[in-house]
Design a binder for these strands. Sequence first.
DNA 1: CGTATGACCGAAAAAATAATTTAGTCATTT
DNA 2: AAATGACTAAATTATTTTTTCGGTCATACG
Lengths: 190, 190
Amino acid sequence: MSIDRKSLILLAATKSFVQFGYKATTMEQVSKIANVGKGTIYTFFKTKEELFEEILDKATQELTSVMNRIAAEDNTFIHKLFNLLDSILEFRSDHELFVKLAQEVRDIGTVQALEGVKRMEDYALDFLRQQIERAISSGEVKPCDSSVAAFMILRLYLALTTEWNKAHEPLDEARIKEHMMLFISNGILK
Amino acid sequence: MSIDRKSLILLAATKSFVQFGYKATTMEQVSKIANVGKGTIYTFFKTKEELFEEILDKATQELTSVMNRIAAEDNTFIHKLFNLLDSILEFRSDHELFVKLAQEVRDIGTVQALEGVKRMEDYALDFLRQQIERAISSGEVKPCDSSVAAFMILRLYLALTTEWNKAHEPLDEARIKEHMMLFISNGILK
DNA sequence: CGTATGACCGAAAAAATAATTTAGTCATTT
DNA sequence: AAATGACTAAATTATTTTTTCGGTCATACG
């Protein structure tokens, strides 16, 4: 039996999407990296979009599984949030795919990249919203619009992990977490 | 004596920059709105950029004067911040110019618009940073990197006033302030 | 035979070129 | 002397030509 060609292709495509984005990844390039003929890709995936979808599915599945594991923990809201940030910051590959796609949306507005970003964002937002909702019910968090609060937390996270780097030295993980917690948990006031 | 042509031109140009952005504003259009000949503009401003600069100067001056007035108040950090948000949210014209230019940067990346946005942002960031620094010294605010904190507050503000509207009904001023304060002053935890 | 392959095709993107618009000037008017 | 709008060169946009790339399929290979 020959080596598992499908995995080979998925791996190669993931690498390429992370490095070059959706548009700049060509099927020939993927076939070269995977060491298969171009036609072989089409025995496993109908189109480039389908290949992209499957990689996106995998990424959101990983994200969902991380989030569900953390949500199931018997822990305070703030510790869950802490763990969530840890996990995401650790998850380099998915995070980098997200960042690359977001950049592609900014630069050339590729529609597939936009949909990918939206999908990952919507997952994260919905998870955050649910957790906040629950924490409000349990009295852990002040009553507030959970959608808005989730949105703010995500924007804050993205601001620190990607936007900050445009004009400054990147912040290390510890400082990102530190500052996120400063704002979210008790505010910056003494 | 004829009516003050320079003010007329500045007013017309401001209107046009706010409505159409830097690039889509033509000198002929400005002259039409101001009811003067095109050549007349060039008796007061050497170039389109200089005209833009002067309007930008005026906007940042207004912003600076608001910020200085608020900074001078004998008040707690959080109340100053509160007042600052109020003032900015009130300051529709400057705020709208900023928003329009930011949109133009996103959409077509006009270099003059980018510089305008940067200039206004840098003013706001520096002011915030100073205030935070001072509040840390006086023990009002927890020790933290004031640059990062200022950046976070500004991103949060922009997220709520502009980004939120891309996928949701705009938030009214009261809710924007409420949610900003929720995060900044005491955190969302009970 | 069935799976893998790369030359091949049409469609889509990029580059090149033509046409239009606009910032800035200046001879004329008021 | 100040204001103006027709004019020009440069930049922007529309159009055409060229190249690239997603997807197919006849052939090769195991």
